[in-house]
């Protein structure tokens, strides 16, 4: 967007003074970003580079001198069923979030976009879970899902259903993690959609209504289209957040039972800090960085296109 603005200015006044002003503008920009950039360099990019380096070495706590191993760490990951289980758990979670959290967020956003009483209260309330630290909500949900005397099972018993060992069985444990994650993030996505809904042009809505479009048609042909960029943004952010799932698993299940809730990020932690295999853990980190970088790139590309289209 900055580029477009500059281009416009340049076209209007191709003048030396403007050019000088531009350099000083850029300098200010660089200076403003410097603290953040230096911070990122020291705490994000440098460790990333170091992880890439370590991923090529056989490195454990008990081999003080790392030995160059080429892509052996990667090869071991790809041949390890546990790694694939962690990857598939993560994809399952991401798919679950797409199917559960995003539609729920959209519905909430549309509802909260109506003129209803106490709208501000509701909007605040649905955003509430997002600001709670994941560790706290993880603890809360562990209690909710407790086999003996957990409120969820008590409710089931009231309905005459047998209690479920939520966190102790593979399928329900991952489902429990998904439910917590959806609860935690749906409000956030709803706010993204709500912001998108504000930008739906009323003229188009009215035009559609004049053409005889009902509520559903207005939603399908106008609202949903205008929401495109927000939808895409939410999908990508949701993917990125799900791929980083760690805290919930750490608190609720410890990756168990039988690796059923071990996510990509948790796998990295287990390999590195519980099995002390720094090399393999770094290799897994590099793979995660690659996946996330692709997602981020996709998000940037597409959102840029949309922004241009809009202007």
């Amino acid at each position: 967007m900055a580029k477009t603005a500059e281009a416009v200015i340049a076209k209007v006044q191709p003048d030396r003074r403007v050019e000088r002003r531009r350099t000083s503008l850029q300098l200010t920009g660089v200076a403003m970003m410097a603290p953040a950039l230096l911070f990122l360099l020291a705490f994000v990019f440098a460790p990333m580079g170091y992880a890439l380096y370590l991923s090529l070495y056989q490195s454990t706590l008990y081999t003080p001198q790392p030995v160059f191993a080429g892509f052996a760490n990667y090869a071991r990951l790809f041949s390890s069923p546990d790694f694939w289980q962690a990857a598939s758990n993560t994809v399952w979670l991401a798919a679950g979030m797409m199917a559960l959290s995003l539609p729920a967020a959209l519905i909430l956003a549309v509802l909260l976009n109506q003129r209803i009483r106490g709208r501000a209260v509701f909007r605040t309330a649905i955003f509430g879970p997002y600001v709670i630290p994941l560790v706290s909500s993880g603890l809360i949900f562990s209690l909710l899902f407790a086999t003996d005397g957990g409120p969820v099972n008590l409710a089931l018993q009231r309905l005459g259903l047998p209690p479920v060992n939520w966190l102790g069985q593979g399928r329900t444990a991952l489902l429990s993690v998904l439910i917590l994650t959806a609860w935690q993030f749906t409000g956030y996505y709803a706010i993204i959609f709500l912001a998108g809904l504000q930008s739906v042009p009323t003229s188009l809505v009215e035009a559609c209504q004049v053409d005889g479009g009902g509520r559903c048609q207005v939603f399908r042909h106008v609202t949903l289209r205008a929401l495109g960029p927000s939808l895409f943004f939410a999908v990508v952010i949701c993917l990125i957040q799900t791929f980083q799932t760690f805290d919930q698993v750490y608190v609720m299940t410890g990756g168990g039972p039988d690796g059923a809730t071990t996510t990509f990020a948790y796998y990295i932690f287990e390999k590195g800090f519980q099995a002390f295999n720094i090399g393999e853990s770094s290799a897994a980190s590099v793979l995660l960085i690659l996946v996330l970088a692709c997602l981020s790139y996709l998000q940037m590309r597409v959102s840029r296109r949309w922004v241009v289209e809009e202007s």
């Binding site: 000088r20 000083s24 200010t28 660089v30 200076a31 403003m32 410097a34 603290p35 911070f39 020291a42």
Partner: peptide
């Protein structure tokens, strides 16, 4: 005004250095 801005950016840069690298 231009000067002001330059000065500000310099100060910010310096601040940044102090806060992080240095």
């Amino acid at each position: 005004m231009k000067r002001d801005r330059l000065w500000t950016s310099g100060a910010l840069l310096a601040l940044g250095l102090v806060a992080t690298g240095c």
